[in-house]
Nucleic acid binder design. Structure first.
Lengths: 146, 146
DNA sequence: GTCAATGCAAATCGTTTGCATGAAC
DNA sequence: GTTCATGCAAACGATTTGCATTGAC
């Protein structure tokens, strides 16, 4: 699994906040870190039920954990119309998204030129960037052929 | 108001689909065409109640009209972070946003290079773009000085 | 007169919250 | 033992749907 590092981060953050380390939060973080995929809360719940049947994690816990993990920056989310908010681990390089509004599939891309232009625009506006998010919505090749 | 053209388009589309032209749909389309703003369904409803008090348009009709108008491409929607789906008329120039997470202010910008790169990326992925949304989050100059 | 569109209320979906119980410390 | 996190169910807000009525054609 090779994600001891991120679990250590989780432990540190939780300790520093006077909160408690629980299996549930670790499992949810691991799922999103290991899986190279964008998942909504329902999908995370399904995976937990399938891969960790001995645990009986409620959907409320999933939502609470996802909100917390995003807050402390261990996962990130993108939101769009139908399927609600989708989450992904932070173990990947920064990238942007091509989102198919027909089937909900998400393709990733990275473009150095766009990144540079954004930095320049922020600079020109005396704007101190925290992060940015670029989504291209449309119809993917598969759905075009349907 | 200068939006007879778009109402003609609406009439044509409705006729071609064997549907019926109604005041309600025309009002909702006009609001989004005239106002230079992104509105969610609730906000459209509020404007209708305020500006067209003699009509008593139900929220369900607002949603049905918005879905229809988007489907036939007379308006477009974006998912603006947490606020859900927001709609805008098609008469507005495209632009992106610098969003200050401290004070919530929104600055608009347009960058031809970024637009071109995005088109290219979509093309390379055989992706048929409907729209795109680029947000740069951070701290604006005013808030930096506080 | 016919059939689609509307208004209303109930239903539904994704998400959050209140509360008693259970687990971490 | 104290306090936080969990699971469950109820609550919630945004959107949708079912149905009788209204209005466009």
């Amino acid at each position: 699994m090779g994600n001891e590092k991120i679990l250590e981060q989780l432990k540190d953050i939780i300790k520093s906040k006077g909160m408690k380390y629980t299996e549930q939060r670790a499992i949810i973080l691991q799922i999103l870190t290991d899986l190279n995929n964008h998942l909504n809360a329902e999908e995370v719940h399904d995976i937990v039920k399938k891969d960790y049947p001995e645990h009986n994690i409620g959907i409320a816990t999933i939502y609470r954990a996802l909100n917390f993990l995003e807050e402390v920056n261990l996962i990130s989310s993108i939101s769009f119309g139908k399927d609600g908010k989708k989450y992904e681990g932070k173990n990947k390089e920064h990238h942007d998204h091509l989102i198919c509004t027909a089937c909900g599939s998400i393709e990733e891309f990275y473009d150095k030129d766009i990144e540079d232009r954004q930095d320049m625009i922020a600079k020109n506006n005396n704007f101190e960037t925290t992060y940015h998010s670029l989504q291209i919505f449309g119809i993917c090749q598969l759905c075009q052929n349907k």
